[in-house]
Structures are given as structure tokens and as C-alpha cells.
Nucleic acid binder design. Structure first.
Lengths: 289, 289, 289
DNA sequence: ATAGGTTTTGTCAAGCTTTTGTACAT
DNA sequence: ATGTACAAAAGCTTGACAAAACCTAT
């Protein structure tokens, strides 16, 4: 493989040696190996990178941005930031009551990643984090309300049409008294992306309501959800009754309240994607028998 | 929706600005909205009306009669189905738990009418009707939950980006204990279409939360909303305190609870469109002083 | 993702830097990120927005209103934007090789409208239009390639996970020699949104390959697709053989080539949404018997 | 239709900072 | 080769200005 010294690289790229060194220092554009004497030794890949830099410059992009682009081009599509970084961006925007900013973060994310990732690696972790911060008194209730509003709007937007089609039907509802439905919506989306049809009854749904809707719809699954564990206790009897006629799954902290047995209902304790995959498999097997 | 100032309307219609103002004053031919500075803002419908006026004038009809005719022509322009029929379609789909069907009705509607009409003539009346039917025991809670979910998703979808821009800021929140936020979202959309930026805190918002958010955002208006009148009583003192620092408006049945005076807060008792227009005018005048 | 400083944005948009800053300050038209030193950094979406602003200005709309419109267009306020207008936006972005711009149009659209509408009213009509323009020599091959690439990427992004789940299985393939698979992907998405699982064999698929895949999967439907009618003739016999064991549907111009009868295979000649709805109904009835 | 006042909007300037190519000393 | 320096170019903010377009009232 060819190795170039700075003079030769300069000639082939048309960029002065001084400038090449400046680009290295300022933007980290090049990371040449060194000869024993300390001379910079460049590879053909470096030449390519310098040429890309010049192209971007000729295109009118300023040096700092051109360098970032030249480096990024090479990294393939490693342009995507880590989930943590994105979550931080989202958190920042929502904390500032900056709705447009938050939407932009979600837009960019959806353009490059799957719904499962969006939910499992960004939105739901963010909600947990927000809950924790709130418990520690670091986040205000206003921020929590605002963030819920934005995210709910966005998730329900994605949910449009989730009742359409031929898949098995799932009825989704929060237990009585429970108002936090974002996790449930997220689970609905995960089911939808696996072919289910969703009938969504929303927060604070009386169980006779759920039973009534289920009688007509004959769903393959009824999902009950509550963030706080104590929602389950008052309605255990009704949930048992419902489980006699339908397959019932319980999600959220209510799943761990210990007042129901695993042979009565299904507990959803993992992340949305795998739990959605699980119940899908169950239903497929059920249909096969 | 294009918005024209008087000069552009003049160019497109071939009628001098002076004459346009005269027609407005003398015959009420036009009812333009106003910019913050007081400039007349016309819609494409206004342009159409002016053109009809000219046609009648060219036909030899005197100005006063021509104006009457031009206004009258418009009243009979309803090519689409009646709001009642559409509302019935929507109700049918939602009663059947048919989410895709409901979405289709809303899609078609949005394609032909304004947002104000959608809200004022279909969605909100439907919600009232549903509430009434529920009180009479004709609708189940399941249907109400399902319908709310679908409509909330749709309205929040339309709300996307409503924090964007430079217009006056409105903070929107439901009173503590109040979960029905659809009316509030509708009002937010009506404000948005008049240039406001919306910060939405959602259902069941403690008043100190609202106060805190408002301290940072310095909104031109804080809107508090409750469907049931009794939500206001427990928090009257806090609302009064809030009203010392911000202009506060109260909507829903809470507006009629009689525990606050009209010189303390603003009551929103009419339909969303006109109330939104009202507060917009108020803020414009306030800004002028 | 290119990043522009104000000078370059000015050059590309034809608006002076001073004016760009004024528009930002006065109308909130732009919200550039900042470099460490405080320089404004703009995205291609910002460029697009400035261009829309100028278009409205050229149309005679005054600056304040033009800015509101430019922002609204983006926010997806489809109370104003007809499918034609959106298609024009998409076409504009793709013609300029502006990939981020095109993505933004699709983003905003997906947020407010259904997938069916996106495909049936925007993407597929645009493809037809592009084909026509290409035949008339008005569009270059480069443009067609670029547009196809962007759209294929986006559609395949939406297609992520479409093999997952519980619904009936459809095997999708282009006839031998046929390279244009965008229409087929669109049809796959329409099926997916109705609960199907998709097995996608892609462009230029030999029929014995299709037969082999189908033997193992036992799909409820095999969809063969070709944009040019003459692809069908050479393989008629094999298609007939395939139709003995599976329900076969034929889409694209190949459906109208007349070499097969309607009692042998199913012809898909309408728009994707209604054809997808049709075959879904067929399968449901078939399953019921 | 005119007069007199206001709003809107593109442009410019002053004073200061950031960026970036080039140069110079070690 | 390294490190520092420097100066031109490009940006930023604040504030202001003037022409054009609009307002109301007579």
C-alpha cells in the first residue's frame, strides 16, 4: 500500500501542507502515522478524505462542517447518535417546553430506526427517567404533563389505523383509576407492528366496560395495564371473571402486585418488543391447535 | 390557507383598497380578521365574494343590492353533506369500535372543510351528544372511552407543531381532577389556527404546576378548563393568585360555576371559533397599549 | 446531512443574511442550531422553508403571512395542503436532489395522514408523473434514479418488520426482467397495514424461485408484478402452473396484457388501497368457509 | 379623495467575536 | 514539525431608519 508524505499529499490533493496540518489540528480530519523521524505518513484513504473535504468546501460548506461531513461520509452510516444521546436531546427539548424541538428529534429518529427501537430505547426509558426525576424532586409536574402530552400525541399519531385489517384483535385498557396510558399505547403499537388489530379503551376504564366491549369483539387478547401496583387489588375478582372468557394479560407495575397467579393471567414484565413477540407467538400456537 | 392584505386583495380583485373598505363599512361585505397592528387580513373566500360583487355590479345591479346578493350566494354554497349527516356517520363508526371507519370520515371531512368547522360542527357536538347519551344510559362507557381515544389521537395529530413560531403563547391545562381534555385540545387548535403558540399541560394539572410553567414562559394567556363545574371550587384561591400575574381564561362548565367574577378571569362560554377569535382580539389590543 | 452557515444559505436561497436574521427574529421562520462560537447552522429543511417563504412572497402574500404559511406547510396542516400540493412539494425536493427535503415532506405527511393516503395520493401518483415526464424527455435519468432511491429507502424503512406477526402470508415478486419494484413495495405496505405478513422476493424474480418459496410458506396469496406489459408473455405457462397450487394475483401493466384470464389469476388494476382491501376480504371469506 | 398618523419590512451601521487560511519563529 | 500569531472574511447583536403599505377620520 502506498504511503505518502505531506508534500506528496499536498501535490495530489492541491492543498498546502500548512493547511493540511491545520485541518488535522483543528478538525481531526487526518490521523497520519509517523515515520521514525516524526514525518507524517498518509494513506490513500487520507487522500480520499482530503478530496471529499475539498468537494464540500467547493460546494460552499464552511470548513468546520465540511470536515465533519468528510469524516462522516467515511464512517458509513455511523452518523446515528447513541440512544442515550438521543434520549438526552429529547429530554432537553421537553424540559424546555420546546414542542417543535421534541418533534424534530422524534422525526429524525423515526426516519432511521424502527418503531420498536424508538419505543424501547428512547420513549419508554425517557418516561421512566422522568418518573424517577420527579420522585427525586428534580423535574416539575409541569414538565411531566407537558412531556406526556407531546408523546401521547405522537404515539397516537403513529397509532392511526391500528384497528384496520385481518390480524387477531387485542382490547387494551388501563385499570380503573389509572391515568398513565403511554406505556399501554406503546405496547399497542408493538402489537400492531406484528399484525394485530387494536381496540383501545384508554385510561381509567371500568372493568365491566372492558368485559362488555370484549363480549362483542371476541379479542384474542385483553391487555390490562396500570403503572401503580395498587390498582389491581380492588378489581381482582372482576379480572378473574374476565379471564374465564378471554385470555387476559396484565402489564405495568400491576403485573408484579402478586394478587394474581401466573396460571390465571399472563404477566407482561419485559420490554414491549419481546412481550409483544411473546403474545404473538402464543396466539399463533393457539390458532394452530 | 392563504391570507391577503388589502393591497393584494385589491390587485387580485381589481377593486381599489378605498372601495373595499367602503364596501365593508357600508354593506358589511367583508369581515376581515386583523393583524396585531390592525391591518385587515382577508381569506380566499373574501376574494371570491368581492368577485361576485363585481359581477353583480357589472350586471347593472346597484351596489347595496349587489352586496346583498354576493353575501347570499355564499350561504347556498354548501355542496357537501350536512354536518348532522357527517356527525351521524362518525357516531356510527365509533359506536361499532370501527377505528378505521372513523378515521376515514375525519379524513374526508378535513379534505373539504376548515378546522373550525370540523371542531365546531362535528367533533365537539358529537362529544356533547355522546355525553348526553351516556347520561341517559344509551351509550356504554366502553364506547365513550374508545371514541375519546380515537378523537384524542386525531386532534393531537393535528396539534403537532403547535408550539412553533413567534405568536403569543398560551398555556393550556385542565383543572385538578379533570380528565376530559378534548374540548381543551380543540380550543388549542382554534387558537393555533389564529397564530398562537400552544404549551399544553393536559388533564389533571395541579395549579402550582401551571403557575410554575407560566412563570418561565410568560404566556399572553393561561386557559384553565373543566367539564364538570365542581372542579373550580377547591382551587379558587389558587386561580385568583394566578390571575394576578397572568391573564387567565376559564372554559367548560367550570366557566359557569359562578365562583369567580368576570373581572377576575375571562369566561369562555361560546363556541371554540368565536372564543378563540375573541381572546386573539383582546391580546392584540393589550399589546397595543 | 449537510449543515450550512448563513452566508451559504443566503447564496442558495437568494435572500440576504440580514433578511434571514430578520425573518428569524420577527417570524420565527428559522430555528438554526448554533456552533460553539455562536454561528447559526442551518439544515436543508431550513433552506426548503426559506424557499417556500419566497414563493409565497412572490405570490403577493405579505411577509408576516408568508412566514406563517411557510411554517404551516411544514407542520402538515393539511387543512390547506391538497394532495396535489404535497406531491408538488415532494417533486420539487426530489428534482433538486434534496433528499432531506423530501424526507421532511414524507415525515410531515405520515404524521397526519394514513399510509394508504400517502401511497395512493402522493407517492404512486408522483411515480407515474415522473415516468411520464421521463418519456417526454423532461426528467433526466439521474432524477429518476435519485427519486427511486429515496423513495425505495423510505418505503423499505416503513416495511421494516413486515414479515413479522400473525396475519396471512403474501409472497411478493416482480416478474423476470422487471426492475421497477416500488409499486410492488407500496402494495406490500398496503397489505401489511391490513395485517398481512409479507415475504418479499424483490425485482426480477425467476418463477421457479417464487414457486419454491411458496411451496414452503403456503401463502394465502402470491403477487406478481410488472410495470411493462410484455414481461408476462414469456412466463405465462409457469404462472399458470403456480396458480394451480396458490391463489395468484397480478399487478401493474402486466395485469392488462390480456394473456391470462380472470378465472386463472386475480387482476389488480385499481389503486393499492382498494385492491389491498379486496384481497383481504377474499382471504377472510376463504378462511371462513 | 385627502390628510395625518401607524405598521410593516427590507436594509444598513457600529462594535465585537468567531473562523480560517497563511506566515513566522523555534 | 510544532506552536503561535495574525489578518481577512464572515458572523453576531443591537439599534435604527426610511419607503411602502395601511389605518382612521374628515
Amino acid at each position: 500500500m502506498t504511503v505518502l508524505r505531506i508534500g506528496e499529499l499536498s501535490k495530489r490533493s492541491g492543498v498546502s501542507p500548512e493547511l493540511l496540518r491545520a485541518w488535522e489540528r483543528r478538525y481531526g480530519l487526518l490521523r497520519p502515522t509517523r515515520s521514525r523521524g516524526g514525518l507524517r505518513l498518509y494513506s490513500p484513504a487520507d487522500l480520499e478524505r482530503v478530496r471529499r473535504m475539498r468537494q464540500h468546501l467547493d460546494g460552499g460548506v464552511a470548513a468546520a462542517e465540511a470536515a465533519a461531513l468528510a469524516l462522516q461520509d467515511e464512517a458509513g452510516d455511523h452518523t446515528s447518535a447513541s440512544p442515550e444521546a438521543i434520549r438526552a436531546q429529547l429530554a432537553g427539548a421537553l424540559d424546555r417546553f420546546d414542542e417543535p424541538g421534541a418533534q424534530t428529534v422524534l422525526d429524525r429518529l423515526l426516519a432511521v430506526t424502527s418503531l420498536d427501537t424508538l419505543l424501547g430505547a428512547v420513549v419508554l426509558p425517557y418516561l421512566h427517567e422522568l418518573g424517577d426525576r420527579w420522585e427525586r424532586g428534580e423535574a416539575s409536574v409541569a414538565q411531566e404533563h407537558f412531556a406526556s402530552g407531546v408523546l401521547r400525541g405522537r404515539l397516537l399519531g403513529l397509532a392511526r389505523g391500528w384497528g384496520l385489517g385481518v390480524g387477531p384483535v387485542a382490547v387494551l385498557a388501563c385499570l380503573p383509576g389509572e391515568q398513565h396510558d403511554l406505556g399501554l399505547i406503546a405496547f399497542g403499537l408493538a402489537l400492531r407492528s406484528r399484525g394485530w388489530r387494536i381496540v383501545y379503551l384508554g385510561p381509567d376504564a371500568p372493568l365491566d366496560t372492558v368485559a362488555e366491549a370484549s363480549r362483542g369483539l371476541q379479542p384474542s387478547l385483553v391487555v390490562l395495564h396500570a403503572v401503580s401496583g395498587e390498582r389491581m387489588q380492588p378489581v381482582v375478582a372482576q379480572v378473574r371473571a374476565l379471564a374465564l372468557h378471554h385470555r387476559v394479560a396484565v402489564g405495568g407495575a400491576a403485573a408484579e402486585s402478586g394478587v394474581l397467579d401466573a396460571d390465571e393471567v399472563l404477566f407482561l414484565a419485559g420490554d414491549v418488543a419481546s412481550e409483544a413477540a411473546l403474545v404473538t407467538t402464543l396466539v399463533q400456537e393457539g390458532a394452530a391447535t
